[in-house]
Simulated assay, not measured.
Amino acid sequence: MKLMNILLAGLLLWGAAACSDDDKPTFPEEPTYDMTGFAKGADVSWLTQMEASGKKFYNASGRETECMTLLRDLGMNSIRLRVWVNPSDGWCNKSDVVVKAWRAHQLGMRVMIDFHYSDVWADPGSQYKPAAWVGLSLDELKTAIADHTKDVLNALKEKGITPEWVQVGNEITPGMLWDEDATVSGATYDVPKEGVTYAKNEKNFADFITTGSNAVKEVFPNAKVIVHLHDGNNNGTYRWIFDILKANNTPYDVIAMSLYPGTDNWQEMVAACVANMEDMVSRYNKEVMIAEVGMPWDEPEISKSCLTELIAKSKAIEQCLGVFYWEPQSYGSWNGYTLGAFDESGKPTVALDAFNQ
């Protein structure tokens, strides 16, 4: 069965799966939930794939509930969705993203779109070009970035969906659009040592972000463009990357961070991340946010304490826009991921209570 048929079937199942009409999303024109101000959200990009595999989700009383509705009822008001260019299995491509974004929109939730500019995961260890972009000249590569960005965003626009935030690249600390190694993009994994420069390709790196940013603004002028790095507690890395962007007059609106604390060091990591956000606001005059956070699913009380402190301290920063949990609905070691916030029965753990405070 083709992917779109699977997705459409999944939507029908989603509407029919609840035990009664009371369980179904009502899609109010004027949501009674707080959908403004500080964003409390989740990246649920795996959701349609999980549903197609038979995964179901339940509220605390054991009632089967559509996942985004469940997260909304737990205090979340925003959904983040990743986009891959041409993934081999179809998940997280344009069509899949539109389906999930439409569902979030119907629930009155705010939407963030996260462009990876890859066919697969783009993260600190992997920033490879989509297969169709390999061998393109620099100008052709910029055209591909712009065309892909506008294609996905226009598909959303056609459905009446306006994303509030758009990421141009995902955890791009080591650069973007590699061929075989990081030197293509002009950045390396570690912060460069004093006296060592990486000027050879820094402009290309900045130009890729500029190209994506300009494409976003062409379709959605009011969307906030995000530049996202990993290790939100590492101030040196952030100063390095954002000094490069400042030197190249790169246009963007928000500095976003990932933070994955351990159960034994979360307090110091949260403190360092908060200090880093404050420094980014002061140094670059930009808004900030936590685009990804995760903790071990089987340590829910510690996770709740960490999230409660992170959210409270983030909200205390006037220029901080929000906090997003990464794939909290993952359970049963889905794809080997163990940093979700649902237990093995498909119910949310107490960790997510932090989003309802």
Rank of each mutant, 00 (worst) to 15 (best):
L153I: 07
L153Q: 12
N154M: 12
N154Y: 11
N154D: 05
A155N: 14
A155V: 13
A155K: 13
A155L: 10
A155H: 14
L156F: 07
L156P: 08
K157M: 08
K157N: 03
E158L: 12
E158N: 12
E158T: 14
E158R: 09
K159T: 01
K159H: 11
G160P: 02
I161H: 04
T162H: 08
T162N: 03
P163E: 09
P163Q: 00
P163W: 06
P163V: 02
E164S: 01
V166H: 02
Q167S: 10
V168H: 12
V168M: 14
V168R: 05
G169A: 09
G169L: 00
N170E: 06
N170L: 05
N170G: 11
N170I: 05
I172M: 06
I172F: 01
T173A: 14
T173S: 10
T173E: 10
T173D: 14
P174N: 02
P174T: 01
G175Q: 10
G175I: 07
G175E: 07
M176V: 10
M176R: 01
M176Y: 09
L177W: 06
L177C: 01
L177R: 03
W178R: 09
W178M: 04
D179T: 08
D179W: 04
E180Y: 06
E180T: 14
E180R: 09
D181R: 00
A182E: 10
A182T: 03
A182H: 00
A182L: 07
A182V: 03
T183V: 06
T183C: 02
V184R: 14
S185R: 10
S185P: 10
G186F: 04
G186C: 11
A187W: 04
A187K: 05
Y189V: 00
Y189M: 09
D190M: 15
V191R: 09
V191Q: 07
V191C: 12
P192Q: 00
K193D: 12
K193S: 14
K193W: 05
E194G: 14
E194W: 15
G195D: 01
G195V: 05
V196E: 09
T197E: 03
T197H: 03
T197P: 03
Y198P: 02
A199R: 03
A199P: 09
K200S: 05
N201F: 04
N201H: 13
E202R: 09
E202G: 01
K203A: 15
K203L: 13
N204T: 11
F205S: 08
F205R: 02
F205N: 08
A206M: 10
A206Q: 04
A206D: 02
F208N: 11
F208E: 06
